[in-house]
Design a protein around this nucleic acid. Structure first.
Lengths: 340, 340
DNA sequence: AGAAAATACGCAATCGTTTTCGATTTTATA
DNA sequence: TATAAAATCGAAAACGATTGCGTATTTTCT
């Protein structure tokens, strides 16, 4: 790190006390306009930039927010971060971004590092492996504002942002059934995380509503490995009484389904209709184009950030309320669920 | 920001001087094993975490690296950051990630904020609008280690990581020509940035080599707006003597081409062969599957980080050498360039 | 004109570390 | 046994900013 001139040096150059210069730069009423002008122009001339760490140390805040996501190569999370940044940036806040790669051990490490106050708040979506949440509780107990989105942790009493997981899955499954599916399957990354629970519930509700008896083997838990998932799905699709519809609770499982269908010689949508939660921009360009349930990701990020900015920049703010805020997803019907 | 117990308080609890506790925690040889044990266990018990800002202030380094990219919703950049993080994380470094959204004004703002030393180094890929580089020079002049990748800034004497832009485009264009293209077009985001210059040069070289006279109107400068690009391309594809091949220098232009081709009723690959620089994981699932030139993105990120870590964690390191390090791209041939 | 109040600025402490320089005690050497 | 040499630890000064308090000067009021 290469630091430039310090406040003290700037003050010396001006024949003023550091306190005066500090106040002048912060536009204090105690300083005359004349001195302010002199200070400002000299600061400009000498290229003075206040040391952020001295300030953080003194003020006990870092103007930094940590964002923890399970994967970076995913449009949804990228869009959420874009949304967050669009708001925090206006307030001069910085974004520390960490990726867990769906690994709870990494998540623990990251969280433990953040215990030291490097960030003023945390926005996160937990990894699919996260069931024990003691590390998150530690954060919370320390008083650090945490905010969850998408994959939330209901045990921590704070504000959470999600989409209408139950309802949108219900409607998506209805759509599958309307398109003629008699044996839809549900794909998930893990049974533990919030979104799969809700989405699975919506899925099952739609089946029940339609009087379809669900085959438990059609609620498939997949893993992180793309190849392994393709194998699992290929096997599923090669069964005698295979599913004729797929609801993928996350995007990567829809893509694995596409690959598996190819390998198993199963045609989409003729033999298998596919629908997935996904914020891919190019769902429409896939072969066949993919029917998606897409979240208002950017919006979710923005709202997260707005709440945080309010909490962090205004005085005497209460703790983040323990509530779940829902943003509805949008179902976009494309070729992958077309009836013949 | 909520801080826990301080070193001083910890020391008081132990009836030791802060200096002793500090040394004990840093495993100094001056402290007896016995006291070290006591200090460690008390630190553990009281949940002590050293304040990173006090440390940064004192040590004049932040253990933070800033990464600036033009867009987040792009697999290439996401992979590069994954690569960077995989290395920096091991060294206890943090990643501050900023996105310019291809806007040079934002880039300038971000860069000016980083002038204060919040980060120990910067890894960046410049926006497509960046031609004036005075803001980058300011950073460099301040002594901050900068490192460029993909879209580099040759005027700044530092280490840059790129792919073999010229060569891979040359080969990709040869492929187009081999597949029967007589009138290939080249799509770019801007004429100014490094990658388009090199890639265009490779493109032209292949045409020359094949004795194809290039129509300057087939070197098309596009913009940021997806809709506008589709319009531009639709127009290009509707001409009487339209191109029969497209080399998109960036991914988003290939996708715009797909959309435009649909609208203009141009079939890929029968009427138009398409090839693009892209790190999309699902290029193979597009309709038709897209022939790509893909960079070893993760590897580029890792190498960036390795060089930086060496520079930042070892003593007496020289400045980053002014050199360009090249990682070859890989051409993956798919349906979009198939001859009938 | 004299007192009160407003204006403009400086001194010094503080935030939580690390580190230099000593000081003291223990151990080893002659 | 006296002395040199390790071995341990403490006091205090940084790092660079902010801020409560004090003070000198000027302005305003009666």
């Amino acid at each position: 790190m290469v630091s430039g001139i310090s406040l003290k040096e700037l003050a010396a150059e001006l024949n003023l006390a550091p306190s005066t210069v500090s106040r002048a730069l912060n536009d204090s009423y105690e300083i005359s306009e004349q001195t302010k002008k002199k200070v400002l122009s000299m600061a400009e001339k000498l290229n003075y930039h206040p040391n952020p760490f001295a300030r953080s140390l003194r003020e006990n805040k870092s103007k930094t927010i940590a964002v923890i996501i399970p994967e970076r190569i995913n449009n949804f999370f990228a869009q959420v971060i874009d949304g967050i940044e669009s708001i925090t940036q206006e307030h001069g806040y910085h974004l520390l971004v960490y990726c867990t790669h769906e690994d709870v051990e990494r998540e623990k490490k990251i969280v433990s590092v953040l215990l030291n106050g490097r960030a003023d708040a945390i926005v996160m979506s937990v990894s699919s492996q996260t069931s024990d949440i003691s590390h998150l509780r530690k954060l919370y107990d320390r008083g650090l504002p945490i905010l969850f989105f998408d994959r939330i942790c209901s045990e921590i009493p704070t504000t959470k942002f999600i989409t209408n997981d139950y309802q949108s899955t219900l409607e998506a499954t209805r759509h599958l059934i309307q398109q003629g599916c008699k044996r839809p399957a549900f794909l998930m990354l893990s049974e533990d995380i919030s979104i799969t629970k809700e989405r699975h519930r919506g899925f099952l509700a739609a089946l029940k509503e339609a009087g379809i008896e669900h085959n438990p083997e059609f609620s498939k838990v997949c893993c992180q490995k793309e190849e392994r998932n393709i194998e699992i799905l290929k096997e599923l699709l090669s069964k005698e009484n295979r599913p004729d519809g797929i609801l993928a609770s996350v995007e990567k499982l829809a893509l694995a389904t596409y690959q598996a269908a190819k390998k198993a010689n199963v045609r989409i949508p003729e033999d298998l209709k596919v629908i997935s939660f996904s914020n891919m921009g190019i769902a429409g360009l896939l072969n066949p184009s993919l029917t998606t349930i897409s979240q208002p990701a950017c919006c979710i990020g923005e709202e997260c950030a707005k709440i945080l900015m309010k909490k962090l920049t205004k005085v005497n703010q209460p703790d983040l309320p323990n509530e779940v805020i829902t943003f509805p997803s949008k179902l976009t019907i494309r070729a992958s669920t077309m009836a013949e």
